[in-house]
Design a protein around this nucleic acid. Structure first.
Lengths: 155, 155
DNA sequence: TTGCTCCTCACGTCACGTGAGGTGGC
DNA sequence: TTGCTCCTCACGTCACGTGAGGTGGC
């Protein structure tokens, strides 16, 4: 019973390529696996063998790293946020399987909740950054004004 | 020759109050002093005596911490950025003193340069954050669309 | 005088960086 | 076969956290 849908899956990549693609280092990827932020490859892989990553795993890792970089959450907080992401993946698979509309509705609502939690973090950061940005721009304008006044005076 | 302009200077605060105000910890402030990011109070203060901070110093510290939090620069990078800030303070004092228009112009131009470097960092971060924000919002909309479709189907 | 905050070591921790020595696939 | 990347320890580092023991101002 091979029911996998026909998909053009590109070949899995090794840790070095993945690191370059998502903008990090192999060590970081291994560390995330070590603390349980990424699925444990040790279980599915003979010790000493290379780690391999699918397109989907790479995409997921990219999101994790982006969220960390841009919001500054700790890896522990990120883990709770990502367990939500993880839940989303599970939800998707279950969604494809289930026909029960009630169940589908519940799963989708949970997905919205997870996204809302991430958006809340990102929105707050965006507001803080905008505040700093405006302040720096205001200072810049004031200095430029003084420069122009200097020009006028010297004529 | 007391030429200090009449200013309503509020009394200097202690490290705990300062930390609370700028949203950090006393340990962090001491650490920043230790690595040379903040001026060395050890020089001006008998060992064992309390550190005291003026309004201006607190404002400066607030900016440092904001820049760090929101751009994610390392303390070493921040130090170079802040040496620029430091330079700005010096510039301001010199500006108040000098009458030479050529000198004034040069100092002001340097100030603009320093602000531009900080703004470049902040602008890039803001763009990255906006990208992530849009992506999360798009996902959210897609899930909501699926929820509405489910509603229609169940009617 | 009693709390409270401050002080200076100094060790602990988080999130990795960086070799050290060895194995595995184009 | 030769590079190159990978592997697993394991110690180092950056940016602080967290007591330990002691001193100083409302």
């Amino acid at each position: 019973m091979t029911v996998a849908p026909p998909q053009t899956s590109s070949p899995p990549l090794r840790i070095g390529d993945v690191a370059r693609i998502v903008g990090t280092t192999p060590r970081t990827i291994r560390y995330y696996e070590e603390i349980g932020l990424l699925p444990d490859t040790q279980a599915t892989r003979p010790p000493g063998q290379h780690r391999l990553y699918s397109e989907a795993e790479i995409e997921r890792l990219r999101e994790i790293i982006r969220l960390k970089r841009l919001t500054g959450v700790t890896l522990d907080e990120l883990k709770t946020l990502i367990e939500a992401e993880e839940a989303r993946a599970t939800i998707r698979r279950e969604l494809d399987d289930t026909e029960d509309p009630g169940r589908r509705r519940e799963l989708l609502k949970r997905a919205v909740g997870h996204l809302d939690r991430q958006l809340e973090l990102v929105d707050r950061r965006a507001r803080e950054l905008a505040g700093l940005q405006e302040e720096l721009q205001a200072r810049r304008r004031r200095v430029l004004t003084r420069l122009r006044e200097l020009d006028k005076a010297s004529v």
